[in-house]
């Protein structure tokens, strides 16, 4: 009973808590791992040697180029109606303010629609977006496009309510996108509390003036690597089951949840298979992506390099939505393939995690799923994920060893069985 053996080893056996403990040493040793930073270089070196020490096969680094942006010194202060220090985190790829900073009245809006309705009020102002958190995918548009929409109506900077479902004065960062032909203005996220306070003041008719200083700087692209390790298949070694997470993180907290958890349960899958002396028919390949937070940069270059072998990619799996209590597997593929994966999920009955959900989510595996390769992502209880996402709160304190054990069990049973079945998944 291979599935049971994997579950027992991961949840109750000698591998219990290993993925959590490995992640804790890694996160405490390396810290946050922003694309282009020395910490990320150190993280890749660390993993290159750790995967070799774990006696995995074909451990190697695949060179890629990644963006290199640094936030520098930044702060914001409300000057009117009273002095108040605003909690900010500059957004990735933002430009700096002029050396003397920017002092301007704010225009607070709760949506792009309101901004467009009040466009004539925006000239020379700092636009503050106080958009409510709906869902990440919907609300992240304000982080991504807030500066461009504000610049289009003549604003001099944008401050965006953090894309977070809960806050204790914690700003959340992330990447943002300028648009060719639209002036570039400095942009940062602010805490939910500060966005709401300035909104209330404005609605009272109070004039709000803010001073913003940002030292952000974009450098030439940096060299980085996707980190790869394998258990080579016994019968069809050229066919691949890819399990992955991303090794880079934002320059806040420890990047333990995003995406240390996903990276380390993916490593755990290969370790568990190796510990049990198993060798599936197909190659089980671990990829730890670089440059994910800047838009799946490392993954795109990996895809370009390997797409010629796309017919040999059986399934691509990424865990990048937390490793809290697992609920099942999100899957993208044909109905026939879904039925097979549904059957595989029944093997997880001993831990009662057998559900399958629509559409796998994973920036780094999207390139393959778009070309018809079946894809899977770990579905977990993300009710608290956006409390900590891209914030200083993303630390090991957020992670739970038992939940990671269960996530690793799900991840390993699914990837091993697909790698060992007589036929590849239909596509």
């Amino acid at each position: 009973s291979i599935a049971k053996a994997i579950i027992d080893l991961a949840v109750h056996g000698k591998a219990q808590n290993r993925s959590y403990e490995r992640l804790a040493v890694f996160a405490d040793t390396i810290g946050p791992r922003l694309s282009g930073s020395k910490n990320l270089d150190a993280a890749i070196k660390y993993m290159f040697s750790a995967l070799q020490e774990d006696r995995l096969e074909n451990v190697h680094l695949e060179p890629v180029k990644v963006p290199h942006w640094e936030r520098g010194e930044e702060f914001a202060v409300m000057l009117e109606p009273r002095n108040h220090s605003i909690a900010i985190l500059g957004l990735g790829s933002s430009i700096a303010t002029p050396p003397e900073g920017i002092t301007a009245e704010v225009l607070v809006v709760t949506s792009f629609d309101e901004l467009h309705r009040r466009a004539q009020e925006a000239k020379g102002k700092i636009v503050v977006y106080n958009q409510p958190f709906i869902t990440y995918s919907e609300t992240v548009q304000y982080r991504s496009r807030g500066a461009v929409e504000a610049a289009k109506v003549g604003a001099v900077a944008s401050l965006i309510r953090s894309v977070a479902s809960f806050s204790i004065h914690s700003p959340h960062t992330g990447w943002q996108n300028y648009q060719p032909g639209v002036p570039q203005i400095p942009t940062a996220c602010i805490s939910v509390e500060d966005a709401e306070m300035m909104s209330r003041m404005s609605l009272q008719g109070t004039k709000v003036v803010v001073y913003l200083k940002m030292g952000a700087k974009t450098y030439p692209d940096s060299s980085s690597f996707n980190t790869v390790a394998e258990i080579v298949g016994s019968k069809y070694p050229e066919q691949i089951v890819l399990v992955s997470g991303h090794l880079d993180s934002w320059d806040v907290g420890q990047g333990a949840m995003d995406d240390g958890g996903g990276a380390f349960i993916s490593w755990e899958a290969l370790s568990l298979v190796k510990d049990l002396g198993l060798r599936p028919k197909r190659t089980l390949r671990l990829v730890l992506w670089t440059g994910e937070e800047q838009g799946g940069i490392g993954a795109e270059q990996y895809y370009q390099l390997h797409k010629k072998n796309i017919s040999n990619f059986d399934v691509v799996m990424e865990s990048d939505e937390g490793t809290f209590r697992p609920m099942g597997l999100a899957f993208t593929g044909t109905d026939e393939a879904r039925d097979i994966v549904k059957e595989i999920m029944t093997l997880l009955l001993p831990i009662n995690i057998t559900d399958i959900y629509d559409t796998a989510d994973g920036t780094d595996i999207d390139y393959w799923m778009r070309d018809g390769v079946p894809g899977a992502s770990l579905r977990d209880d993300i009710s608290k994920y956006f409390w900590f996402h891209h914030s200083h709160g993303d630390t090991m304190t957020v992670q739970d060893p038992n939940q990671m054990n269960l996530c690793a069990a799900v991840w390993t049973v699914v990837s091993y069985v697909i790698a060992d079945m007589k036929e590849m998944l239909p596509r």
């Binding site: 599935a3 039925d339 097979i340 029944t346 036929e423």
Partner: peptide, 24 residues
């Protein structure tokens, strides 16, 4: 029906279910 790579007929879903059950 074409032969699959190890010379057998492609499996029915029932066959696949049985194969997967072998892992439990």
């Amino acid at each position: 029906k074409s032969l699959s790579r190890d010379g057998n007929y492609p499996k029915t879903f029932e066959d696949i279910k049985k194969e997967i059950a072998g892992y439990s």
